[in-house]
């Protein structure tokens, strides 16, 4: 019986961790914030610290190596060019997060990667981390180009924030704001 329990635990740990980062798309789901502006759709869904840790432990991190990232309010972000008037281009470093009166930019991947290198994270795990983040710069053509990736907001757990993202089409600027996005401690909050 113990053998069955052990096998079950190992198999489900191995098989279920890839699912952790998946988006749950529902217009009635209160944990998804989504908005469409000028044919571009942006959504956020929170990933709780244990989910983030489980995902990255499955990719080769240790619990200690990923702890600081997992506790920064991490979301699955989806950005799509559904039907904008042309190819959109964005730089993630221009996006802003406003929490009460404090405004900040999204932390760059290179800062995280430098921290992880100091913690001796393995090269395959570093590749997985870099690619699992929402790209820092990207272009999407209309009618379906999109990416899904993690986004660390770096705001205190239990607070709400506004996030403003921007992009351009041939140099013309556009922006979209998601208001009062909540960073909960756990799914039941």
């Amino acid at each position: 019986m113990n053998q069955i329990k052990l096998l079950t635990l190992i198999i489900f740990t191995l098989l279920l961790t890839p699912c952790i980062a998946e988006e749950k798309k529902s217009s009635t789901d209160p944990t998804i914030w989504e908005k469409t502006e000028k044919g571009v759709t942006f959504s956020l869904k929170q990933l709780y610290p244990d989910q983030v840790k489980a995902f990255y432990i499955g990719r080769g991190f240790t619990k200690d190596q990923i702890k600081s990232y997992a506790e920064t309010c991490v979301y699955t972000a989806v950005l799509r060019n559904d039907k904008a008037s042309g190819r959109i281009h964005f730089l993630r470093k221009n996006w802003t997060v406003k929490n009460k009166d404090k405004e900040q930019n999204i932390q760059e991947n290179s800062e995280w990667l430098n921290l992880f290198k100091k913690k001796k994270v393995s090269p395959p795990a570093l590749i997985a981390f870099r690619l699992s983040q929402l790209p820092e710069e990207q272009e999407y053509d209309p009618n379906g180009d999109w990416n899904q990736g993690m986004l660390s907001i770096n705001t205190p757990i239990g607070t709400t924030f506004d996030i403003t993202i921007d992009w351009d089409i041939k140099g013309n600027p556009y922006e979209l704001k998601l208001k009062e996005v909540r960073c909960a401690k756990q799914a039941t909050d």
Partner: peptide
């Protein structure tokens, strides 16, 4: 037999989750 059953259950679960809860894939 046990491992086969687990993999099959996982495949069904994954298909269900991925087919029903994700944005539609386009063909552009």
């Amino acid at each position: 037999l046990y491992l086969g059953s687990i993999v099959l259950l996982f495949a069904i679960f994954t298909f269900h989750v991925e087919a029903s809860d994700q944005p539609p894939l386009t063909h552009s």
